[in-house]
């Protein structure tokens, strides 16, 4: 990889100042970005590691919201969110592998918005709020396509706020080599209604399956999904599965998620 200037600030303010440089780039846990650097797909002049900012690592309740610091690792979320939000903890517990989960962070995952990542499904599937150093973003406005978000250059995800669902489940069909989601579906029965978010399937990244949401709103049971299907158009097709296969899997994984959410709720 190309060399860069490395900075490891202790506060968010310092990090934001260091990121003001045009070619500066934030480094979360690095589990995606370091391999990207090795492939020379990115060449920042300055890398600003967020790993020294203790204030970005927390899991706590504030009122009715579960609030998670942007620098919190998947392993910590798996452990500390288990009692309040078991579906989110289970999602975190199945990202990558144990060593990856000790470095990778929720803020890094949401900032990257990989079309096959797990956390975007949880954020969109619960209508979470993504808090940054300068703004708050509703999940519905935050995800804007493959590897694209509402974040400005240099904007840091400092916190993610989740309303707790009445019942929820994330079901991931694992692509076994990468352990990313070939298709992953997050289903949540929220106080305001049912939400269904799909990752891994679409070329534009995570999306809400609104037809399924409407059907489940009337009757939260897997049977109501039998009549629904998604078109293959716009779905990812690659060596791991065709777009038709992924469209089909969305239905399968959504039904499984409804069954699991019903059992857990």
């Amino acid at each position: 990889m190309y060399d860069f200037e490395f900075a490891r600030p202790a506060t968010v303010d310092e990090a934001v100042a260091l990121l003001a440089d045009e070619d500066a780039q934030a480094l979360g846990g690095g589990q995606t970005f370091i391999p990207t650097l090795k492939q020379r797909l990115a060449a920042p002049s300055r890398l600003v590691s967020l790993s020294g900012i203790a204030a970005l690592r927390f899991v706590r309740m504030e009122g009715d919201l579960l609030c998670i610091g942007g620098g919190t690792t998947h392993a910590t979320v798996a452990r500390e969110a288990a009692a309040r939000f078991p579906a989110l903890a289970a999602l975190a517990a199945h990202i990558g592998d144990p060593a990856v989960r000790n470095r990778g962070s929720i803020g890094g995952s949401l900032a990257n918005n990989d079309p096959s990542a797990c956390y975007p499904a949880a954020a969109l599937g619960t209508g979470a709020t993504i808090v940054t150093d300068r703004n708050t973003h509703a999940a519905d406005d935050y995800f804007q396509g493959m590897f694209t978000t509402a974040l400005e250059p240099g904007e840091i995800v400092t916190e993610v706020r989740f309303a707790l669902p009445e019942a929820a489940s994330y079901q991931k069909f694992v692509q076994p080599a990468s352990r990313f989601a070939l298709v992953g579906v997050f289903v949540a029965r929220m106080a305001e209604g049912v939400r269904v978010a799909v990752t891994g399937a679409a070329e534009d990244g995570v999306f809400r399956w609104t037809e399924a949401e409407a059907a489940l709103e009337d009757d939260f049971a897997p049977g109501v999904l039998e009549a629904l299907s998604l078109p293959a158009e716009g779905m990812i097709g690659d060596m791991h599965g065709s777009s038709e296969y992924r469209a089909h899997l969305v239905g399968v994984m959504t039904r499984r998620a409804v069954v699991a959410a019903t059992a857990s709720g």
Binding site: G30, Q31, I34, S49, A99, V100, N102, R103
Partner: peptide, 29 residues
């Protein structure tokens, strides 16, 4: 593998296993 897949480089940092090929030395300061 040097692509953080294989785990041959696993060491403990702060008491937990991590892949030392997917972490910079300066992050272990």
């Amino acid at each position: 593998c040097d692509t953080s897949q294989c785990g041959a480089c696993t060491v403990h940092v702060g008491g937990v296993p991590v892949k030392s090929c997917a972490m910079f030395a300066l992050e272990a300061e």
